[in-house]
Design a protein around this nucleic acid. Sequence first.
DNA 1: GTTCCGCATGAATCGATAG
DNA 2: ACTATCGATTCATGCGGAA
Lengths: 292, 292
Amino acid sequence: MEIKTDIFLGDSKEILKSISDNSVDLIITSPPYADQRKNSYGGIKTDEYVNWFLPISEQLLRVLKPSGTFILNIKEKVVNGERSTYVMELIIEMRKQGWFWTEEFIWHKKNSYPGKWPNRFRDSWERLLQFNKNKKFNMYQEEVMVPMGDWAKNRLKKLSETDKKRDESKVGSGFGKNISNWLNRDKAYPTNVLHLATECNNKKHSAAFPESLPEWFIKLFTKEGDTVLDPFTGSGTTNIVAQRMNRNSIGIEIIEDYYNIVKEKINSTKYILFRQEGKYEKTEQKRHTAVR
Amino acid sequence: MEIKTDIFLGDSKEILKSISDNSVDLIITSPPYADQRKNSYGGIKTDEYVNWFLPISEQLLRVLKPSGTFILNIKEKVVNGERSTYVMELIIEMRKQGWFWTEEFIWHKKNSYPGKWPNRFRDSWERLLQFNKNKKFNMYQEEVMVPMGDWAKNRLKKLSETDKKRDESKVGSGFGKNISNWLNRDKAYPTNVLHLATECNNKKHSAAFPESLPEWFIKLFTKEGDTVLDPFTGSGTTNIVAQRMNRNSIGIEIIEDYYNIVKEKINSTKYILFRQEGKYEKTEQKRHTAVR
DNA sequence: GTTCCGCATGAATCGATAG
DNA sequence: ACTATCGATTCATGCGGAA
């Protein structure tokens, strides 16, 4: 099997035009959030955000397969003591474009940014908006089943054994990091609230989401050999995870420095022999118990 | 001190007109959600929901004190495989009325309703929208502080004691837990994600939220002697909790059966002995941690 | 090799200060 | 008056170094 990973340098709005209709199984991205500051990464102003994004979502609608899914990670900023409404306006406008707004997952960021203010608490969650092209779409729910039981106890177990599991933590994380418990035969379907910590290590790109986030959705909405697209690929997390999980992927990045970083980290083609596929199976313990 | 609890029978839109301007410190309510079925409780149709609610929120804006807060518990239903957009439209329209949309808390329902669907997971969260009349409002953050979640330091110390404390720890965000064991210096401010279970005892009113929900917001946004309003009081949870916490409260319910149930459960006046106002302010925090 | 502890830092926000 | 910049605040997490 041959897995292709294509990273493009340029503006998504333009680059997307070169991608075929109905060719992508999953789009997952975390676009630059609206920001009033001018010099920040991709700083689109709040009141321009919807108009900036709509031409891109129009292209995304075109390239997505009818059975595909679009996951949009976004959160509105506080402006003048108030939450902005551009995300809500965006949802409403995207529906007019033809998107179905199927679901809103919540990403609960367990380690949110600290701070103390007189009128609000720390912001500890982000939206993961699920859009679809049709009401019927591919969803492999069994791939992301979680062990039954009290979530609180589970989390505590994980935390007390964090040190032991340090090495496995990056590979395994479906919901969090506890892989050893996956041998339990009693499993349940997850809910639409995801508990993941942000990765606060030395990424050069400030806005990377944790690998477990794209990993979870790639498991849920694609199978091996499918194609994943991230039109704001940043440090390339989506593409790296996709390649590791034997999915073809496309990444687009407008900033040359990030583009170069990603190009260095990823080979454009990954050849999988039978042996290597077996190796992947061993690393991803969850797949063993999942129903194909 | 005398605490008054007034329950009214009738339509909120009308009853609210009898309440004075700028007289309420906190409005917290869980209105009937939109529903396509006609015979369900308060079944307002999806596409009529915003127009149905706006006259009520207009009255709420009038009766709320400038320093007050409005907490709206709501979640959009799935209609034809899609999330409805009426909540977002409502937020946008309420801002036009003059409300500030300060924040959106997430209520993570740890024990969400069971079920399995081919195209979605269990819905395990609801919105708690915070609206304000001014950008400055009363907020008593210390009242809802939670124990520090730094288990790393305590991991392998005092295992037995730690285990006991863990159940009350950060995962619960202070809901339904015994706060008396907390030490002041071990506390942290909470985030905008609230973790609490729905109460699954068979209330006659189907849409009751758990007592810990209004309790948390009453602690956060009011002090003793303040006034709390629930324009859709249902089984009276908000008023019962408010009275127990020595807050005046107003409840409005349109369905006579519920109204009667609440009237039976609550005395309209509660007299509190031996309260010294002067001492109260300084010892407020200790009192709360001691009593609860 | 494991366990323990210190520390940097992360899609933040407000309010004060400077231009 | 209005905008741009900066410091203070604050805590879960994972990494690195030490025991």
